[in-house]
Structures are given as C-alpha cells and as structure tokens.
C-alpha cells in the first residue's frame, strides 16, 4: 500500500511542477503589477513552441539524390542529412538529440523579449483599469497568441522526443533502499521536477537575496513609497513581468516531451493555474508554489482506480472542487495575506 501511495505522490509531481511554475509567474505579475493576466497560459504555450521551433531549426536538412542507390519503391534514394550534422558531425547529432533542453537557450531571450514587449505594449495601459477589463484584454491577447501559433505551426500537436539517454525510468524505490523495480518513475519526469524546484528556488533567491529583488519586494508592499524614494519601480516591474514570462516559457519547453503541445495547450493550463493561484492565495508566492504541487498531487490521487470506484469522476473535477471549497471557506486562499483581494 505504501508503494502505491508513494507512486501516486510521484506521479502528481510533474503536473504539480508545471502548475507551480505557471502559478508562480501569474502571482509575480499579480503581485507586482496588480494585473490579472489571462495570457499567461499562452506564454507557457509559446515556450513549448520555442522548443518546437528550435528543433525545426536544428533539423533543417539538405536533401541530395543519390542516383546509385534505389529506395524500396524504386526511386532514386533521397539522402537527408541535417545541416548541423553535416557541419559538426557527431557533435551535431548530439545537438539534435538534446534539442529540448538546449532550446532553453533560445527560450530565455525570446520569452524575456515577448514579456517585456507585452507589458510595455499593452499591459501597462491597464494598471488602473478594473480587473474585469484586464481579464478581457489579456483573454483577447491569449486568443491572438494562440491563433498566431496555429497559423505558423498548424493545429496539430507537435510531439517532441526527449533525449535518448533520458528516456528510461528511474528506480526510485531501489535508491531509497526498497526492493528494486517496485517504484519506478520516468526519468524525464524526475528531471522536470528537479528543474522546476531549481527554477522556483532561483526565483525566490533572486527576490530574497539581491538588491533588485529587495526593491521589487518593497514595491510589491508599497509601490508609491518606493517610487517616492526615487526608484524607477515601473522599470523593475516590467523586468519582473519578463522574468515571469521566462519562467512560464521554460516550464513549457521542458514539458514538451511529456505532452505534445498544440495551440490550445496554454488555455487548458491557464484555467487550472488560475485555480491554483486562488487556492494558494492571490499575491502569495509560496502559496502559489505549494498549491501547485498540492493540486497536482491531489489530482494524481484522485485518478487512482480505488478512489474513482468510490467517487466516480472525481479525477475530472477535484481541482475545481478544491477551489470552490477554498474560496468559500477561506477567501484569501491557503497563504494569502490578510486583506489582499479578500472580497
């Protein structure tokens, strides 16, 4: 029994990591700019497609016709060779193999740019407008981003292969001194979890231990006073928006081998991530992360057959159910500060 529970716990971690990362970005945006960003899921999806685009770039290939050999259909054989492989040989093949983690290199600058452009170009006009209008405009923006991606990549999902070395399963049970082969867990999911934890750690460390982070935290607490002290808080908040976009993008990149992305992916994750933010407490970073993992794990437990036998369909609605209960009994969420968005 312990093994089963432990395994479900592990199974919830990867989804929980994705929720936590998206919710973290949402909370950063809400905490700094006070904007409810319905386009954040689209940023996650955009990150996924950075990986797709990067792989496409890497696998640009030359097609040469080899007249001496024939394909099984009797035509002259077409030899396809990726350009990187032609240029770099084996190193190129490794590059292609590791395209998903490598595309982080592309994702970070791209998402930073997208985030800053989005904030300067559109969001900044909505600081003072009601939340309903912020929701509406970012919702529209999410549609636009989704449709742009659809226009370029088509409506179908794009499966991304994970690096061949990382395809196996990790025998976590054996690591912990249990019998071998009882608790195995796909290696990539483990990597995703560790990746998420390190990103979350980095964001927290950045906010906690750097001067920049200190200023941002001060601005979150009292924007006006920080401004009066002569600090250009707006610029720092813009950068924070960019960082939130980068976090969402990186979360997306690493998630592609687990779930082939298509253009609707963003919204599917956004709806849940919003629920996560609300459960964690609007504006509370630790709350968002905790709630993300918590709901991921809860969802995993709810999809156990034993549980489903008692409450049919519970796996489909557990997250929303938790959100409804939390909102009704504890409006500020698990870790929300008293008085922040409690109405």
């Amino acid at each position: 029994m312990f093994e089963v529970i432990f395994l479900q716990f592990l199974n919830g971690l990867d989804k929980g990591s994705a929720y936590a990362l998206i919710a973290l970005g949402l909370t950063i945006v809400f905490g700094t700019l006070g904007v409810v960003n319905f386009a954040h899921g689209a940023l996650f999806m955009l990150g996924c497609f950075c990986a797709v685009a990067f792989r496409r770039l890497l696998t640009l290939e030359t097609v040469t016709i080899d007249p001496e050999k024939l394909s099984p259909w009797g035509q002259p054989l077409q030899v396809r060779e990726p350009l990187v492989q032609a240029w770099f040989g084996d190193f190129g093949a490794i590059l292609v193999n590791y395209s998903v983690p490598l595309s982080l290199l592309l994702t970070v600058p791209v998402m930073l740019l997208v985030g800053v452009a989005m904030e300067r170009g559109l969001i900044k006009f909505f600081y003072k407008r009601p939340h309903a209008e912020q929701i509406l405009v970012t919702f529209g923006l999410a549609i636009v981003i989704g449709e742009l991606v659809k226009a370029f990549f088509g409506p179908n999902p794009h499966p991304q292969p994970m690096p061949t070395d990382l395809r196996g399963a990790a025998d976590i049970g054996a690591w912990l001194g249990m019998r071998a082969g009882v608790i195995t867990y796909p290696l990539w999911r483990l990597i995703y979890f560790l990746f998420a934890v390190s990103i979350i750690g980095a964001v927290f460390a950045f906010l906690q231990f750097t001067t920049f982070g200190m200023v941002v935290r001060a601005g979150m607490a009292d924007r006006e006073t920080v401004g009066i002290l002569g600090i250009d808080i707006d610029r720092r908040f813009t950068i924070m928006f960019g960082i939130a976009a980068v976090v969402a993008g990186m979360a997306g990149v690493m998630y592609t081998p687990l779930l082939p992305p298509n253009y609707t992916l963003g919204m599917d994750f956004l709806v849940i991530s919003f629920v996560v933010v609300v459960v964690g407490g609007m504006g509370s970073l630790p709350g968002a992360v905790t709630a993300g993992f918590l709901l991921g794990i809860l969802q995993s437990f709810a999809s156990m057959t034993q549980v489903k036998a008692i409450f049919p369909g519970i796996d489909q609605i557990i997250i929303y159910l938790v959100a409804v209960v939390i909102l009704l009994v504890r409006p500020r969420g698990l870790m929300g500060r008293r008085g922040v968005m409690e109405a």
Binding site: V36, H131, F274, Q316, I317, Y320, L328, P331, M341, A343
Partner: peptide
C-alpha cells in the same frame, strides 16, 4: 455570488469546467 470580482469569475469558470468534464466522463 458569495464572492465578487475575479473570484466570482474563477468560481463560475470552475463550475463550468466541472460540468464540462463530468459531461465528458462520468455522466
């Protein structure tokens, strides 16, 4: 309606998603 603003939006969204998911699965 016990909540307002963005919480109301999220609550209604949550209920609608529940209906949708249930209609697809158990119901």
């Amino acid at each position: 309606l016990r909540r307002s603003g963005i919480y109301f939006s999220i609550l209604t969204l949550a209920f609608a998603q529940m209906c949708y998911n249930l209609a697809y699965s158990v119901l």
